[in-house]
Each structure stands twice: as C-alpha cells, then as structure tokens.
Design a protein around this nucleic acid. Structure first.
Length: 108
DNA sequence: CGAGTGACCGCAA
DNA sequence: ATTGCGGCCACTC
C-alpha cells in the first residue's frame, strides 16, 4: 500500500500535483485518503510531499515548517500559487496530474 | 501486544 | 453554506 503511495508521489512530475483522495483511489482505497497522509508523516520523507495537496488544492496542515514553507517550495519550482494571507492553494483543476496510464501524455 | 492518532475525503443533517 | 461523523493503513506510545 504505502509503497504505491510513495511510488506515485515519487513519480509526480514538476509543475504538477496530486490529491490525497486521488492517490488513495489509485492504491485501491478511495476512502483511505488519511492513509496517504499517514504515510506522508511516517513513511518516506524523502519524497516530494510538497507536491501533494488536498482536494481544494490547499497545502498540508502539518507540513514541517507550516503551509508557508510548502508554499515556498511550490512557488520555487514554478507552481502557480494562489491563496490569501495565511491560506494558500494551487490550481488543482489544472495542475492535477495522473499517472501515465491514459496513453502516453497525461497533460502538459 | 493493544489502543490511539494522522498532512483527508465525502455524505448527511 | 456550515457542522458532524464514519472509514481506511501504517506507525507510535
């Protein structure tokens, strides 16, 4: 399970993001979004968890350093960061990314 | 070993 | 529209 999560997160290309629910669905547990969060906290911290956002595209709450730090990371990679003071989010509708199972190009 | 928590999501009231 | 509750796997105490 978590291996799939870590795998997917590790395969998330730059300028692209994935939602917890999405990953959870891909591993076979659409309702196990929390598990993804659990893996994020306990699992492999070497993975780009900053590219993982919630359904609203908002940044994680328990991220090391706070949402601010995560926002810095994302904008540093060139993400289109939106949001208000203290609350940030990305264009999940456009930056959302899916594994290469659609037939090659998943979006650019 | 047993119980509780965790960076979430979705439905129901 | 907002608040409340259930559900899953892995890890920690």
């Amino acid at each position: 399970m978590k291996e799939k999560v870590e795998l997917l997160v590790g395969q998330i290309p730059k300028r692209r993001v994935m939602t917890y629910g999405q990953i959870a669905a891909l591993i076979g547990n659409p309702r196990a979004a929390r598990i993804v969060g659990g893996v994020a906290h306990y699992g492999n911290k070497k993975l780009p968890w900053h590219r993982v956002v919630n359904k609203k595209g908002g940044l994680a709450s328990g991220y090391p350093g706070g949402r601010r730090a995560q926002k810095e990371y994302l904008e540093f990679e060139g993400y289109k960061i939106l949001g208000k003071d203290g609350d940030y989010w990305v264009d999940v509708d456009k930056l959302i990314w899916w594994p290469d199972l659609v037939g090659g190009e998943s979006g650019k």
